[in-house]
């Protein structure tokens, strides 16, 4: 009986912590997505050269690898997340402008945006309601990422449209897996830092959007 009285408040506190991480993660994710969209809009208006996307991605990744882990437990981490998402959003400008120059470019962008929203909301709702632990997927997802990076590296030199399409399709599947994995880690207490949780979910959404846009571009015959 004594054990029950001791564990009940602990379980309650644990649930409270998880709910707090979840609430903070979704609040920060919403704000960073809006900021990212704003920066993409600024970039579209400025219309920087095509290599901007590559440069901002490299800088964002370097910040993510070397600065974010050192600041994730402080308030500065929030600013770093805004910096990373702002950079990635700004890097989307030239790509979005290229699509807007196509006949049905605006439709492709809106379809990709809507598709990404449906995938993210549906998978998040699924992971939150089932409360299943998807942490067993971690190793497989990382191996999948390595295979995709190797294929993308080969395609820089091979320039095969079929391989490019396959890479985009696999990235959508992998990122969908990461949404399940990351959300279940928050729900099951594996991730207690909302800054790290936000950046993981943001990257999944970003990659699904870009890959879906590429697939839709190929499907419409304009890419």
């Amino acid at each position: 009986m004594q054990t029950n009285y001791q564990t009940m408040p602990q379980t309650g506190a644990l649930t409270q912590t998880r709910n707090k991480v979840l609430k903070n993660t979704y609040a920060l994710l919403s704000m960073t997505l809006l900021f990212s969209a704003l920066m993409a809009g600024v970039s579209m208006a400025v219309n920087p050269p095509a290599f901007t996307g590559l440069v901002t991605s490299i800088v964002a990744m370097l910040v993510m690898w070397f600065v974010l882990p050192r600041t994730a437990n402080s308030g500065a981490g929030v600013l770093v997340v805004f910096g990373i998402t702002g950079l990635l959003g700004f890097g989307l400008g030239p790509l979005l402008n290229a699509y807007l120059n196509m006949a049905n470019g605006a439709q492709l962008i809106m379809t990709s945006l809507g598709g990404t929203g449906i995938i993210f909301l549906a998978l998040s709702a699924y992971a939150l309601t089932t409360k299943r632990d998807f942490s067993f997927m971690g190793g497989m997802l990382m191996v999948g990422m390595i295979v995709v990076v190797l294929a993308a590296l080969a395609n820089i030199f091979l320039q095969m449209p079929a391989l490019s399409m396959t890479i985009s399709a696999v990235v959508i599947l992998l990122m969908s897996g990461f949404i399940l994995y990351d959300t279940s880690r928050i729900v099951n207490g594996g991730e207690t830092n909302y800054i790290m949780a936000t950046i993981g979910l943001y990257l999944s959404i970003y990659n699904i959007f870009v890959s879906l846009l590429q697939l839709l571009g190929i499907a419409s015959g304009d890419d």
């Binding site: 990709s112 598709g115 549906a122 699924y126 599947l173 969908s176 879906l212 697939l215 839709l216």
Partner: peptide
Amino acid sequence: PLALVVGLVVLLM
């Protein structure tokens, strides 16, 4: 759920 994602992507394409 991943099969449903594939279905949605094919539908959109």
